[in-house]
Amino acid sequence: MTSTSSQTRKLPTQAIGAKIFHWCNIISLFIMLTSGLQIYNANPVFGGRAGLHIPPIFTLGGWLAGGRHWHFAAMWLFSLNLLWYGIYILVTRRWRHRFVGANDLKALQKSQNSKRLIYAWHRIAYTAIIPILLLALFTGIGMYKPAQFPWIVDFFGSWQALRIVHFASVPMFILFAVIHSLLGRKAGGTELTESMFS
């Protein structure tokens, strides 16, 4: 028999702005990942043209130019989505609960409260992903417009180094997504995760 408390338990709800942000991120990142692998196949980062190639089933665009078109279109969606969400959390003051602070670092050292530790780690993850996202966008712009922004290429030393850094940002973001999902499930169970996309 189901208890009264479980029958009346309120399921978590998410702000519509947060839902839109997450959906746009998933769509744009999926397109950027698959189209980026198509671009990668034209000249693999490791091993040159004879290097490891990604099977076509995991790529989008069909050829180099097609991959670039999809990649840059998704990049604009992703960038504008980040911009408006940044404005959104600034206006709504949600940023106060999203990024790491001194109390979170103290909690990691002293707190025995598992929920408090989960929230502290979550804020650390949110904060750590910002420079990674900026690095991905920064290196992407350098690869997209090297003639207009040669100083970006020079900053990394060479075109190949720029490509490697841009490529390395992908597994770092995937790692963040996995950690973000796991911490979300620990904090609020599967209902919390599902409420973001329902």
Rank of each mutant, 00 (worst) to 15 (best):
47 G>R: 08
3 S>Q: 15
104 D>V: 11
113 N>W: 12
70 W>K: 05
160 Q>F: 10
158 S>G: 06
46 F>K: 10
71 H>M: 08
196 M>S: 07
133 L>S: 06
179 I>V: 02
22 H>F: 10
32 M>Q: 05
24 C>D: 02
107 A>N: 03
138 F>E: 02
23 W>Q: 03
11 L>W: 10
197 F>Y: 09
74 A>Q: 03
44 P>E: 11
38 Q>Y: 08
76 W>N: 04
98 R>K: 13
147 A>I: 12
81 N>D: 03
77 L>A: 02
93 R>F: 09
156 F>S: 12
149 F>D: 04
90 L>H: 09
160 Q>L: 15
151 W>I: 04
198 S>V: 07
187 A>P: 13
193 T>E: 09
122 H>P: 02
93 R>L: 13
188 G>S: 05
53 H>D: 05
189 G>C: 10
103 N>Q: 11
138 F>H: 05
18 A>M: 11
51 G>N: 12
92 T>D: 08
143 M>T: 09
178 V>P: 01
34 T>R: 04
80 L>Q: 06
157 G>S: 04
75 M>G: 01
20 I>A: 12
97 H>S: 06
113 N>L: 12
78 F>G: 00
128 A>K: 03
181 S>G: 07
124 I>R: 00
32 M>E: 05
182 L>I: 04
180 H>P: 01
50 A>C: 08
157 G>L: 11
20 I>V: 14
3 S>P: 08
154 D>P: 04
169 S>V: 14
1 M>S: 15
166 H>W: 04
70 W>P: 09
180 H>R: 03
198 S>L: 10
131 P>E: 02
61 G>L: 10
169 S>N: 12
183 L>I: 03
149 F>H: 06
114 S>Y: 14
131 P>N: 10
70 W>A: 14
127 T>R: 00
182 L>S: 01
1 M>H: 13
91 V>L: 15
114 S>Q: 15
148 Q>W: 15
20 I>Y: 09
188 G>Y: 07
36 G>L: 11
180 H>L: 06
106 K>A: 04
54 I>P: 12
55 P>Y: 15
48 G>Q: 07
141 I>Q: 05
46 F>Y: 14
119 Y>R: 02
122 H>K: 09
79 S>G: 10
191 E>H: 13
175 L>P: 01
183 L>G: 02
77 L>Y: 00
54 I>C: 04
171 P>T: 01
134 L>T: 01
8 T>N: 13
190 T>R: 08
130 I>D: 02
128 A>R: 04
52 L>R: 15
105 L>Q: 05
181 S>C: 10
95 W>V: 02
44 P>A: 12
131 P>W: 01
57 I>H: 13
33 L>D: 01
83 L>I: 05
61 G>V: 13
118 I>E: 10
75 M>Q: 03
197 F>H: 11
17 G>N: 02
118 I>C: 15
3 S>H: 14
94 R>P: 14
